[in-house]
Design a protein around this nucleic acid. Structure first.
Lengths: 138, 138
DNA sequence: CAACCTGTCAATTTTAAAGTTACAGGTTGG
DNA sequence: CCAACCTGTAACTTTAAAATTGACAGGTTG
């Protein structure tokens, strides 16, 4: 199992940047919404910046999204912040065994299919969708 | 946290049970193929047994599959050994915040869609497929 | 220049998988 | 019947990655 909140928190941060007022966008205030540490927020924002989803200015609390909400998908965010595969091949099997020597290669082929399918779904969910649902429930 | 090999190892074990000779099916020998500890193998086998995929006899090294290879899918195995969701909602957001209060519920709806898609793919991969690919590469 | 901020490093804590030891109890051949 | 296997579990310890936290260099601004 792999319990990481990276995608959820990164999405949360992106929505904060879009929805909060310009004077509420310090990592401190965003961290208060996510309920975590400001350093965690800045670390995630740094990854989002590297991925080109977010623009920041050193010293100024004025992050901005680089694209419109409808042009940012959960896959964009996932790939920006989480480098792990959804399923994991055991790399340490006994290579001298008939099964142990081949299963990794075989499984990774199938895992790729599964992950591709999940990625396709993530790519169809935009921040606009999420933001829309958020305001509906408000 | 950590990347789990539960699905891979459980699949590996199931294939060992199917492909190995009857006198090679102790948890010790399977563990040698997976390259792990016999207790880890027995722990996974126990979950597979609870899920009804594997039949074992206490004291005897004669585990057997309860169904034909083509009737066991990677989803069956995944659900047997891994209880975690593929994506994880941050449950600890600030519920007093407009975004923090709603995003968990909203994201989980989308995460469900993604997971359903991944599950659909896993459900289409049978142990027969995997076994077939293994022997091809041999 | 005081009071903010970002960006990043580094140390620590946390959590679940993985690894290990131990042991109760089933099985089997000689 | 007992020695040598085995299973099934409980109860640890270890490991890996995320999360948390403190610290600090350096940008920004009234």
């Amino acid at each position: 199992m792999r319990t990481s909140n990276l995608l959820s928190d990164a999405t949360h941060i992106m929505l904060c940047v879009d929805l909060f007022d310009a004077d509420q966008l310090s990592s401190n205030l965003i961290a208060a919404s996510v309920n975590t540490n400001p350093v965690v927020v800045r670390r995630i924002m740094s990854k989002l910046k590297v991925a080109g989803l977010l623009a920041t200015v050193s010293g100024k609390a004025v992050p901005t999204l680089t694209r419109k909400l409808e042009n940012i998908t959960l896959l964009d965010i996932y790939l920006a912040v989480d480098s792990a595969n959804l399923l994991h091949v055991d790399e340490l099997t006994n290579k001298n065994c008939v099964i142990g020597g081949q299963i990794g290669h075989t499984l990774s082929k199938y895992y790729d299919k599964v992950q591709r399918s999940a990625y396709d779904e993530l790519a169809q969910i935009t921040l606009k969708d999420v933001a829309h649902d958020l305001t509906l429930n408000k």
